[in-house]
Design a protein around this nucleic acid. Structure first.
Lengths: 261, 261
DNA sequence: TTGCGTGTCCCACTTAGTGAGACAGAATGC
DNA sequence: GCATTCTGTCTCACTAAGTGGGACACGCAA
């Protein structure tokens, strides 16, 4: 006993949690990592990580390459089988194309996962040269994006409270880190049906978003429009996004098939 | 003690193996399954499956929906992060477009995973109406497809032997199930650089494939062309596929960057 | 050479996972 | 209407599976 309990509070992780921690340290920027590096970032012992990795590799969840490990083909395969993205794409894609045609801006479809927004689909607009850093399968803290705020505004209170109880890290020039301010922002988004963002997730970018809702009023996904600040007045395109999602909400209400989302 | 050890030989699965078994029972045809159904198909106890599923759901690897469970958004996310498919696509996509333009047929890119071929990318040709059942992320037993045979023909002996020692199930009208015959077929594919298939994986479909090779001569992936039987003589398009992959092989040899594949 | 990093292996400790079974609630069928 | 058969959840005693510290050989760079 008296293990190195000094800093970490020994979270008593389940096996699956450990696997999750390991897979979590991979990122598009650093797709290939060495065992030791993974252990360090995941906060696990090297031996444990090595064993889990070799086990994961045995089932192709990760690949062994010369310089370390990377996400394996099996994850790709499972990813293609995920239904939610498929269903949401089918539901929203036509509307998203309409929106892009109308605005010539980048249109994004995202869902809430934990405290992040994960992008399901992205239609690039003009200003392709401008680096709009979102990426299909990528994640951004929800409180810092228009899409995330639209989703939060129509999520159960518990979700919002859990988020507010945590740390709101500043990731962009205008990121809202004050819980009260964020609460007000969400209230506004709920009332208007539109959430806005101006350089809160990334310098130079503005965004407007509206939620796709279930029958009970909670959000399944959000459609957002992104553009460089100054190029277009977001207050003008916001209503277009809102109108588009209202149409989708009518669809989901009419066809209970979508209710399962 | 004296558990139901009658049929199964109690493989003493590791945790990750159990997770793999659970995720394995999902398929595009049945994307949503109930806990009991999963337990039955995976051969695990209901309690165990329920616990693992709830654990997986906690981390969004699976979703809970009204009628059961489905692959979750986290898998989608990880799938987008898998490097191998990305790299291979980047490498092969231009060539694949050329091939489709030249032949007007469906062009597929696949890799070997275990005893199956997993499709990384598919460019649909004309005959769209015809159901060519392959799907990005989908898998087919390798010994029954041209792509799989092309990959096997340039794989380490051990891989081939392991496959031949197993059961070669008949999945199409002409599936080769005799180890000797398959061995000869692979020998031929190795010599010619092209593998053919005629209704071995699916009734009504023919296929020709060539491997993309590493520096050491082992295969990374295979490009294959598929068409309904009778529409086109595969012996005529085979050389086109071969020529295309030879070009790619020259690329990989020249740029050691690709060697890591 | 020394040092640092990698992956692998070993082993005593114990925690975390197991599966049978009991349970309530929801669908389904007769 | 009741009966059946699912579903997911929970408890519990048992133990095997997983843990992490540490030692090891190897490869690379200073």
């Amino acid at each position: 006993m008296l293990s190195v309990n000094s800093i970490e509070s020994k979270p008593a992780a389940s096996m699956i949690e450990r696997v999750s921690m390991i897979l979590d340290v991979f990122s598009p920027e650093e797709p290939v990592l060495t065992g030791g590096e993974i252990a360090r970032r995941a906060g696990l012992s090297r031996a444990t990580v090595a064993r889990i990795l070799s086990e994961l590799a045995k089932h192709d969840f990760v690949d062994r390459v010369q310089s370390g490990y990377q996400i394996g083909i099996r994850c790709f395969e499972l990813g293609q089988m995920a239904q939610q993205p498929k269903d949401l794409r089918r539901l929203a894609l036509a509307t998203m194309f309409d929106l892009r045609q109308a605005t010539c801006l980048t249109v994004q479809l995202g869902v809430l996962e934990g405290n992040d927004v994960v992008y399901i689909e992205i239609l690039r607009g003009q200003y392709r040269d401008l680096t709009i850093p979102s990426r299909v399968g990528g994640r951004v803290p929800c409180y810092a994006t228009a899409g995330g705020k639209a989703l939060l505004a129509h999520s159960p209170n518990q979700v919002v409270e859990d988020l507010l109880n945590g740390q709101l890290e500043k990731i962009g020039p205008n990121t809202i880190t004050d819980p009260q301010e964020l609460r007000a922002e969400l209230e506004l988004a709920r009332r208007e049906g539109i959430a806005y963002e101006r350089e809160e997730s990334h310098a130079g970018l503005a965004c407007a978003a509206s939620p796709i809702l279930r029958g009970d009023g909670t959000a399944v996904a959000a459609i957002s429009i992104t553009a460089p600040v100054g190029v277009v007045e977001m207050r003008l395109v916001g209503p277009a996004v809102h109108a588009a999602t209202l149409g989708l909400n009518r669809q989901t209400a009419a066809a209970p098939h979508w209710a399962k989302l």
